[in-house]
Amino acid sequence: DFTAKIGHLESTTQSRHVALEKVAAAVAEKTGGAVEFQLFPQGQLGQQREMTEAVQMGSLEATVAPAAFLGGFNPVVSVMDIPFLLPDDPAEAQALRDGPFGQQLCESFATRGVTCIGLWPNGRKSFSSNKPLDGIDAFDGQRFRVMDSRVLIEQFRSVGAAAMALPFSELYTALQTGVVEGQENPLDTIRAMKYNEVQENLLVSDHGAMEDVILFNTAWWESLPEEYRTAIREAFAEAVPELTAHKAAAVASAQADLEAAGMNVRVMTPEEKAAMREVMYPAARDAYLELAGDEGRALIETYEGETAH
């Protein structure tokens, strides 16, 4: 009765798609087959900007989008670009997603013509480089590739590194040839893109949250009976433990593979992380406040209130 095309960027073996397949099956079961999800992975329906816009227009019913790609639609969501935002502990991080911070973030999409029904965890970014990453000082003078985000540029600037905005499609070549020396991505992405072939050092920092935002076309969402909406919300929420486990397994095997492939892997200690957070967080947060206005300020207040101990 209801069919939703859902587009996203990941390949069919990656955590997001595997979890989406579970969600599609669960939704079909909970609604007795009345709601069907058709998945279009790997950017088959376009790049993320196009897909998000298509969800606004109604030519696509839903997309599961990395927060980092949504800044043009909703500057508030760029809060997720801030390094060391979410606690390391998965349960504490999930509490933030489910609590006032997560709800306020999700609601900020309502005035942008789409309905956010939740956030999904999709791993954390770490640093890699061809130069040593022994400590915070080692970042000084290195060139890192970033997505074009003011917040990320400030993250690197705060430790003396230069950030270059390059398209993801050119990153491998850019690392290989030395256009940039380092980059930041989750470990399973680093393995999938074979960056180990062109990078020597890996610093497992888990500094940046890779949060997925689940967005539905508002008109389609509101055309659903209440019980189906509840079923869909439940299906997405119930998939989280499995999603987290799948991602954790992928990251663990990626780390082993990268080590076996000859990368010099070092895991950051909690003390080191705390020290780096102290440098990076304020700089990146201030850049965020500048671009996200009053809504951003309110969200940061909620966040800092919730995380203050």
């Binding site: 043009g72 639609f73 905005a165």
Partner: peptide, 9 residues
């Protein structure tokens, strides 16, 4: 225009 979408960079 109504959706206020920006080209961020």
């Amino acid at each position: 225009l109504n959706s206020r979408q920006m080209i961020p960079s």
